[in-house]
């Protein structure tokens, strides 16, 4: 498949979505149903691969590109994934000149508190799926205390949690 067309198809899906997997229906329609570039099973594998590693959920787009056209397809998928991110820059430039306005300050302060609510909402499904035993609950609690009240590097907390998870798995056999 032509890499430019592949890029444009993936870019279209990204531009029509506002969060990680919300581009999935568009990709399924274009890649599986309309153009038959990949199978449904391949799409599921791409989603699983994208979600299993670190980084954004939208990474599955790179896997879709790889499924459709190999390494060049993965590169096209990667560029399609990152391209829309730069749309934020003109909006920022516009707002930066109006930051002193009391109404805008009030709105931003409100958005800060609303963001906290959205974070709790995002944490709930991860917590339900992950905090299934004493070890994971303890890891979450210790991570909270360390991250909220100390200046320990986040990477150290992530690495320590991985070691605890691995140790728990090995002890259980």
């Amino acid at each position: 498949m032509n890499l430019l067309v592949l890029y444009l198809l993936l870019l279209k899906a990204m531009l029509l979505s506002f969060s990680g997997l919300s581009s999935l229906p568009v990709i399924e329609a274009d890649f599986v149903e309309k153009h038959h570039l990949i199978t449904e099973r391949q799409l599921n594998t791409a989603v699983a691969a994208g979600r299993s590693g670190p980084g954004p959920l939208g990474l599955y787009v790179v896997s879709v590109g790889y499924m459709a056209a190999g390494i060049p397809g993965a590169v096209a998928g990667y560029i399609a994934m990152i391209s829309p991110a730069f749309l934020i820059l003109p909006i920022l430039r516009f707002l930066a000149n109006r930051a002193g306005n009391p109404r805008i300050r009030g709105a931003i302060r409100a958005l800060l508190l609303s963001a906290a609510g959205l974070l709790i909402s995002s944490a709930l499904p991860i917590g339900r799926a992950t905090l299934t035993d004493g070890v994971t609950v303890a890891v979450a609690a210790v991570s909270f205390v360390v991250l909220a009240f100390t200046r320990v590097e986040t990477l150290a907390v992530v690495a320590g949690s991985a070691v605890v998870g691995l140790a728990a798995a090995l002890l259980r056999g």
Binding site: A123, V139, F144
Partner: peptide
């Protein structure tokens, strides 16, 4: 299981972020 440990830390990380924001 290793990833589960990391995801548990993610829950703590998000709790810490809520604390900082509020």
């Amino acid at each position: 299981m290793t990833v589960s440990g990391v995801l548990a830390a993610v829950v703590g990380m998000m709790g810490a972020a809520v604390w900082q924001l509020t």
